[in-house]
Design a protein around this nucleic acid. Sequence first.
DNA 1: ACCTATGTTGATAC
DNA 2: GGTATCAACATAGG
Length: 243
Amino acid sequence: MERARLTIESRALHRRIAEVEDADTWVCRPHAPGEIGAALRGRELSTVHRLGKSMWVETGGGPALGLHLGMTGVILIDEEPHPGVWDRFALGFEDGGRLALRDRRRLGRAVLEPDLSNLGPDAGEIGREEFRRRVGRGSAPLKARLMDQGVLAGVGNLLADEALWRAGLHPLRVAGEVSDAELDRLRRALRRTIRDAIRKGGAHTGRLIPHRTPGGACPSCGTALERATVGGRTTWWCPAEQR
DNA sequence: ACCTATGTTGATAC
DNA sequence: GGTATCAACATAGG
Protein backbone atom coordinates (compact mmCIF):
# COMPACT_ATOMS: atom_id res chain seq x y z
CA MET A 1 0.00 0.00 0.00
CA GLU A 2 2.87 2.39 0.65
CA ARG A 3 4.07 1.67 -2.85
CA ALA A 4 0.63 2.64 -4.15
CA ARG A 5 0.63 5.78 -2.03
CA LEU A 6 4.00 6.85 -3.40
CA THR A 7 2.80 6.17 -6.93
CA ILE A 8 -0.13 8.51 -6.44
CA GLU A 9 1.97 11.09 -4.65
CA SER A 10 4.54 11.26 -7.41
CA ARG A 11 2.28 10.95 -10.44
CA ALA A 12 -1.35 11.81 -9.76
CA LEU A 13 -1.48 14.89 -7.54
CA HIS A 14 -2.69 18.25 -8.85
CA ARG A 15 -4.44 16.72 -11.83
CA ARG A 16 -8.10 17.63 -12.35
CA ILE A 17 -10.71 14.89 -12.35
CA ALA A 18 -12.88 14.92 -15.45
CA GLU A 19 -14.70 11.62 -15.09
CA VAL A 20 -15.05 8.79 -12.61
CA GLU A 21 -15.63 5.10 -13.28
CA ASP A 22 -17.58 4.08 -10.20
CA ALA A 23 -20.11 1.63 -11.62
CA ASP A 24 -18.89 -1.38 -9.61
CA THR A 25 -21.28 -1.23 -6.68
CA TRP A 26 -19.43 -3.99 -4.85
CA VAL A 27 -16.08 -2.22 -4.79
CA CYS A 28 -17.70 1.22 -4.34
CA ARG A 29 -20.28 0.13 -1.76
CA PRO A 30 -22.24 1.73 -0.17
CA HIS A 31 -22.21 4.28 -2.97
CA ALA A 32 -24.63 4.20 -5.86
CA PRO A 33 -23.17 4.44 -9.37
CA GLY A 34 -22.37 8.06 -10.15
CA GLU A 35 -22.25 9.15 -6.53
CA ILE A 36 -18.47 9.25 -6.23
CA GLY A 37 -18.28 10.85 -9.66
CA ALA A 38 -20.69 13.61 -8.71
CA ALA A 39 -18.65 14.37 -5.60
CA LEU A 40 -15.24 14.37 -7.27
CA ARG A 41 -15.70 15.66 -10.80
CA GLY A 42 -13.84 18.95 -11.23
CA ARG A 43 -11.70 18.40 -8.12
CA GLU A 44 -7.95 18.04 -7.95
CA LEU A 45 -6.11 15.45 -5.89
CA SER A 46 -4.14 17.42 -3.33
CA THR A 47 -2.47 15.06 -0.87
CA VAL A 48 -2.41 11.32 -0.20
CA HIS A 49 -2.10 9.57 3.15
CA ARG A 50 -1.76 6.03 4.45
CA LEU A 51 -2.56 4.32 7.73
CA GLY A 52 -1.64 0.66 7.70
CA LYS A 53 -3.28 -0.90 4.67
CA SER A 54 -5.72 1.98 4.15
CA MET A 55 -5.10 5.00 1.96
CA TRP A 56 -7.01 8.19 1.30
CA VAL A 57 -6.61 11.04 -1.13
CA GLU A 58 -7.67 14.56 -0.28
CA THR A 59 -9.33 16.53 -3.02
CA GLY A 60 -8.82 20.16 -2.15
CA GLY A 61 -11.98 20.95 -0.23
CA GLY A 62 -14.01 18.04 -1.57
CA PRO A 63 -14.59 14.74 0.18
CA ALA A 64 -11.60 12.46 0.66
CA LEU A 65 -11.39 9.39 -1.53
CA GLY A 66 -10.55 6.22 0.38
CA LEU A 67 -8.80 3.40 -1.45
CA HIS A 68 -8.07 -0.12 -0.28
CA LEU A 69 -6.27 -2.77 -2.32
CA GLY A 70 -7.75 -5.90 -0.75
CA MET A 71 -5.56 -8.86 -1.62
CA THR A 72 -4.94 -8.35 -5.31
CA GLY A 73 -5.46 -4.65 -5.93
CA VAL A 74 -2.91 -2.35 -7.53
CA ILE A 75 -2.92 1.35 -8.41
CA LEU A 76 -2.00 2.16 -11.98
CA ILE A 77 -1.44 5.62 -13.41
CA ASP A 78 -1.83 6.44 -17.10
CA GLU A 79 -2.14 2.82 -18.20
CA GLU A 80 -4.55 1.64 -20.81
CA PRO A 81 -7.67 -0.05 -19.42
CA HIS A 82 -7.16 -3.79 -19.15
CA PRO A 83 -8.81 -5.81 -21.93
CA GLY A 84 -10.64 -7.78 -19.25
CA VAL A 85 -12.84 -6.29 -16.57
CA TRP A 86 -10.30 -5.87 -13.79
CA ASP A 87 -10.34 -2.09 -13.48
CA ARG A 88 -12.92 -1.79 -10.72
CA PHE A 89 -12.65 1.96 -10.20
CA ALA A 90 -10.90 4.78 -12.03
CA LEU A 91 -10.45 8.52 -12.22
CA GLY A 92 -10.11 10.05 -15.68
CA PHE A 93 -8.10 13.27 -15.62
CA GLU A 94 -8.70 16.38 -17.68
CA ASP A 95 -5.28 15.90 -19.28
CA GLY A 96 -6.38 12.55 -20.70
CA GLY A 97 -4.59 10.43 -18.09
CA ARG A 98 -6.13 7.99 -15.68
CA LEU A 99 -5.78 6.51 -12.20
CA ALA A 100 -7.11 2.97 -11.94
CA LEU A 101 -7.73 0.49 -9.14
CA ARG A 102 -7.07 -2.82 -10.88
CA ASP A 103 -8.22 -5.69 -8.72
CA ARG A 104 -8.92 -9.15 -10.03
CA ARG A 105 -10.61 -10.40 -6.89
CA ARG A 106 -12.69 -7.30 -6.14
CA LEU A 107 -11.76 -7.30 -2.47
CA GLY A 108 -10.48 -3.73 -2.82
CA ARG A 109 -12.57 -0.65 -2.02
CA ALA A 110 -13.10 2.86 -3.27
CA VAL A 111 -15.27 4.99 -1.01
CA LEU A 112 -15.86 8.60 -0.05
CA GLU A 113 -14.82 9.77 3.43
CA PRO A 114 -13.49 6.41 4.62
CA ASP A 115 -14.01 5.51 8.26
CA LEU A 116 -10.61 4.87 9.83
CA SER A 117 -11.82 4.95 13.43
CA ASN A 118 -11.45 1.19 13.87
CA LEU A 119 -7.75 1.17 13.01
CA GLY A 120 -4.94 1.08 15.54
CA PRO A 121 -1.70 3.05 15.13
CA ASP A 122 0.47 2.31 12.11
CA ALA A 123 2.60 -0.79 12.66
CA GLY A 124 5.69 0.93 11.31
CA GLU A 125 5.38 4.03 13.50
CA ILE A 126 4.14 2.79 16.87
CA GLY A 127 6.37 3.43 19.90
CA ARG A 128 7.73 0.84 22.30
CA GLU A 129 5.40 1.49 25.22
CA GLU A 130 2.23 1.53 23.16
CA PHE A 131 3.29 -1.59 21.27
CA ARG A 132 3.75 -3.42 24.58
CA ARG A 133 0.36 -2.27 25.81
CA ARG A 134 -1.57 -3.09 22.67
CA VAL A 135 0.05 -6.28 21.42
CA GLY A 136 1.02 -7.87 24.72
CA ARG A 137 -2.44 -8.66 26.01
CA GLY A 138 -5.36 -11.02 25.55
CA SER A 139 -5.62 -14.75 25.11
CA ALA A 140 -5.45 -14.80 21.32
CA PRO A 141 -2.40 -16.25 19.57
CA LEU A 142 0.37 -13.68 19.15
CA LYS A 143 0.03 -13.76 15.38
CA ALA A 144 -3.72 -13.13 15.49
CA ARG A 145 -3.11 -10.18 17.77
CA LEU A 146 -0.49 -8.78 15.39
CA MET A 147 -2.86 -9.00 12.44
CA ASP A 148 -5.79 -7.38 14.29
CA GLN A 149 -6.08 -4.03 12.47
CA GLY A 150 -7.75 -2.47 15.50
CA VAL A 151 -4.70 -3.28 17.61
CA LEU A 152 -2.14 -2.34 15.00
CA ALA A 153 -2.76 -1.16 11.44
CA GLY A 154 -0.81 -2.61 8.57
CA VAL A 155 0.21 -6.18 9.40
CA GLY A 156 -1.11 -8.83 7.03
CA ASN A 157 -0.45 -12.54 6.80
CA LEU A 158 2.96 -12.46 5.12
CA LEU A 159 4.33 -9.57 7.14
CA ALA A 160 3.25 -11.31 10.34
CA ASP A 161 4.99 -14.57 9.46
CA GLU A 162 8.15 -12.73 8.41
CA ALA A 163 8.33 -10.52 11.52
CA LEU A 164 7.67 -13.38 13.94
CA TRP A 165 10.34 -15.45 12.22
CA ARG A 166 12.87 -12.61 12.41
CA ALA A 167 12.05 -12.07 16.08
CA GLY A 168 12.28 -15.78 16.88
CA LEU A 169 8.78 -15.88 18.35
CA HIS A 170 6.28 -18.69 17.93
CA PRO A 171 3.00 -17.55 16.29
CA LEU A 172 0.90 -19.57 18.74
CA ARG A 173 2.28 -17.92 21.87
CA VAL A 174 -0.53 -16.42 23.96
CA ALA A 175 -0.20 -12.67 23.33
CA GLY A 176 -0.75 -11.71 26.96
CA GLU A 177 2.06 -13.99 28.11
CA VAL A 178 4.80 -12.55 25.92
CA SER A 179 7.43 -10.69 27.94
CA ASP A 180 8.27 -7.01 27.46
CA ALA A 181 11.72 -7.91 26.19
CA GLU A 182 10.18 -10.23 23.59
CA LEU A 183 7.65 -7.59 22.58
CA ASP A 184 10.45 -5.09 22.10
CA ARG A 185 12.26 -7.61 19.94
CA LEU A 186 9.10 -8.18 17.93
CA ARG A 187 8.52 -4.48 17.41
CA ARG A 188 12.03 -3.96 16.14
CA ALA A 189 11.76 -6.95 13.81
CA LEU A 190 8.42 -5.69 12.56
CA ARG A 191 9.73 -2.20 11.88
CA ARG A 192 12.67 -3.60 9.99
CA THR A 193 10.42 -5.98 8.06
CA ILE A 194 8.07 -3.18 7.06
CA ARG A 195 10.88 -0.86 5.94
CA ASP A 196 12.47 -3.64 3.92
CA ALA A 197 9.13 -4.48 2.34
CA ILE A 198 8.50 -0.86 1.39
CA ARG A 199 11.98 -0.46 -0.04
CA LYS A 200 11.91 -3.70 -2.00
CA GLY A 201 8.34 -3.44 -3.22
CA GLY A 202 6.12 -5.55 -1.00
CA ALA A 203 5.66 -8.05 1.80
CA HIS A 204 6.40 -10.92 -0.58
CA THR A 205 10.07 -9.81 -0.70
CA GLY A 206 10.77 -11.13 2.80
CA ARG A 207 13.42 -13.78 3.45
CA LEU A 208 11.06 -16.37 4.90
CA ILE A 209 8.33 -15.89 2.29
CA PRO A 210 9.77 -18.00 -0.56
CA HIS A 211 9.96 -20.97 1.83
CA ARG A 212 6.32 -20.85 2.91
CA THR A 213 5.51 -23.85 0.78
CA PRO A 214 5.23 -27.63 1.26
CA GLY A 215 8.71 -28.97 1.84
CA GLY A 216 10.02 -25.52 2.75
CA ALA A 217 12.93 -25.18 5.17
CA CYS A 218 14.02 -22.37 7.46
CA PRO A 219 16.38 -20.13 5.44
CA SER A 220 18.42 -19.61 8.60
CA CYS A 221 18.89 -23.09 10.09
CA GLY A 222 17.44 -25.49 7.52
CA THR A 223 14.83 -27.03 9.81
CA ALA A 224 11.63 -28.04 8.03
CA LEU A 225 9.02 -25.32 8.49
CA GLU A 226 5.77 -26.13 10.21
CA ARG A 227 2.39 -25.04 9.03
CA ALA A 228 -0.98 -24.44 10.67
CA THR A 229 -3.96 -22.12 10.52
CA VAL A 230 -3.58 -19.27 13.02
CA GLY A 231 -5.98 -16.36 13.21
CA GLY A 232 -7.76 -17.85 10.23
CA ARG A 233 -4.72 -17.58 7.96
CA THR A 234 -2.13 -20.08 6.78
CA THR A 235 0.90 -19.74 9.01
CA TRP A 236 4.46 -21.03 8.60
CA TRP A 237 7.19 -21.00 11.20
CA CYS A 238 10.50 -22.55 12.16
CA PRO A 239 9.97 -24.91 15.12
CA ALA A 240 13.67 -24.72 16.02
CA GLU A 241 14.14 -20.96 16.14
CA GLN A 242 10.67 -19.64 17.00
CA ARG A 243 9.68 -20.17 20.61
C1' DA B 1 -15.72 -32.48 -10.63
C1' DC B 2 -14.44 -31.07 -6.34
C1' DC B 3 -11.48 -29.28 -3.09
C1' DT B 4 -7.82 -26.31 -1.83
C1' DA B 5 -5.27 -22.14 -1.80
C1' DT B 6 -4.97 -16.81 -1.66
C1' DG B 7 -0.49 -9.88 0.38
C1' DT B 8 -8.28 -8.93 3.35
C1' DT B 9 -11.92 -7.74 6.15
C1' DG B 10 -16.74 -7.54 7.62
C1' DA B 11 -20.67 -9.69 10.04
C1' DT B 12 -22.07 -13.03 13.13
C1' DA B 13 -22.00 -16.43 16.90
C1' DC B 14 -20.15 -18.22 21.20
C1' DG C 1 -15.70 -7.45 25.00
C1' DG C 2 -12.70 -10.62 23.02
C1' DT C 3 -12.13 -14.37 20.08
C1' DA C 4 -13.23 -17.69 16.38
C1' DT C 5 -15.61 -18.74 12.15
C1' DC C 6 -17.65 -17.94 7.84
C1' DA C 7 -18.81 -15.37 3.91
C1' DA C 8 -17.86 -12.01 0.27
C1' DC C 9 -14.76 -11.99 -4.33
C1' DA C 10 -12.16 -14.44 -8.59
C1' DT C 11 -8.91 -17.49 -10.20
C1' DA C 12 -5.49 -21.26 -10.29
C1' DG C 13 -4.03 -25.70 -9.28
C1' DG C 14 -4.08 -30.58 -7.53
